[in-house]
Design a protein around this nucleic acid. Structure first.
Lengths: 237, 237
DNA sequence: GACTCCCTAGAGTATATACTCTAATAATAC
DNA sequence: GTATTATTAGAGTATATACTCTAGGGAGTC
């Protein structure tokens, strides 16, 4: 998570280097703009070598998705033996957006990817359902802890879905509506302003006891500049 | 809106037929899977003919976007000379989802399209801002009419953005998480269940006077089957 | 040294895609 | 009718893309 490994690590197996570089390139350029030949060239290996390790591009993507899945599942594991704190909630939010950032290529071309790979489609479907269940469970436990008012299950389901929709669409919003120029210059910091939006959804349900605290937390993620961000261009890539 | 014109209309100019068929094919198959040669073949005209009318594929997409923009702008024109009713709100919601349906290819490959066409990028950016402003204005007028409680402007802004995120991501959610098999079988009716989600966002802000009415309205859009929809496959296409 | 197994190079291929070019035809103006 | 303009056909092209195939190197093992 913290070590900034450039892919050219000599200690790494070729197979892992392919996965890592593919993820890097996909995130940077979009899956659609990254060919297997690009990946091979980037790693300075031959296409034949790449295809020795992976049957095709879909297999690379599928394996990257499985890593993503594993990461999110790990973070969204709700401990059932203790009440939930505000810190827990913050951790979940931060983690989810971290994951979204690390595998940000995925949601960009989601529909196309799922059309091309039926394994991926059904896996992703289940993944979504697990996430929705986790979000709903978080709401439930937040209510148990007196942080938000308890809600009937049907409403909780719809609320969880809205949270999911906001989270998974936040990146696209930033890249399409926010940045005026290229889509390259986008930071994890900006992405996390999505937390502000998620907490906005919770506001009406906060208990008086916790309202102030959560509102203060939310304030920490408030977008610095609501709109204009034209000033920085020469940055990444 | 209502006339189901198949594109082979003899009365239509070739240029318009190209636009119409392109939209049809894009919606059905996704822009990424539709080439200019496909479009020409579908219309039974030559590629040369197509390129006589449009310099390139981007120009076709750009013009389709302008139609989309015009449609939504038309529907989201808020009359300032009278208070807003619940029927107005319903009309806005229905209209927005109608537009989303008619140009559904657009949001699917949004990021790629904007990367390829800078005109489109800046136009879309402004389009988004107009939509957000309209949503915010709707909230304001709903408060004026006593349908929802009035909210400070900053909260209204964040709420409007959440509404926008839910609306623009609802289609992707349906296509990726809902349908188990192909992504083809998706109906306008299902899409409009997104209205249920949008109204879910409003619930906490409803005034006692209107709560019942809006909740009843919301109920009309409740998803029929929350999840499993495997049973129908042989349908469209 | 020979055998085996894992890995790699790199040229090559079938297919697709966006787009061009030339010539011809239909429509319109005079 | 003739000139002009708008439209169309259809073959063709440069480039890209996912992927294959053959040959061989390097390291361990007997």
């Amino acid at each position: 998570m913290s070590c900034k490994t450039t892919n050219a690590d000599e200690l790494m197996k070729t197979r892992d280097k392919i996965l890592l570089s593919s993820l890097e390139l996909f995130n940077e350029l979009g899956e659609r703009n990254v060919t297997t030949n690009h990946i091979a060239a980037y790693l300075a290996i031959s296409p034949g070598n790449l295809y020795y390790h992976f049957r095709n591009k879909s297999d690379i993507i599928y394996e990257i998705f499985q890593e993503y899945e594993k990461l999110v599942d790990f973070y969204l594991d709700i401990p059932e033996d203790r009440p939930m704190t505000l810190d827990d909630m913050t951790f979940y939010l931060e983690s989810v957006f971290d994951g979204l950032w690390s595998y940000r290529f995925f949601h960009r071309d989601l529909e196309y990817l799922l059309d091309r790979d039926t394994r991926l489609r059904s896996d992703y479907r289940e993944f979504t359902n697990r996430c929705l269940a986790a979000i709903s469970r978080i709401f439930e436990k937040l209510a148990d802890s007196g942080i938000i008012e308890p809600q009937p299950e049907s409403l909780r389901g719809a609320m969880s879905l809205n949270v999911w929709l906001v989270i998974t669409n936040w990146m696209a919003y930033l890249k399409t509506a926010h940045a005026a120029k290229a889509s390259a210059n986008l930071s994890l910091h900006e992405l996390k302003q999505g937390i502000y939006q998620v907490l906005t959804l919770e506001i009406p349900y906060l208990t008086p006891a916790y309202r102030k605290q959560v509102m203060a937390l939310r304030e920490q993620y408030r977008p610095t500049m609501p709109d204009q961000e034209e000033t920085r261009e020469a940055s990444v890539n």
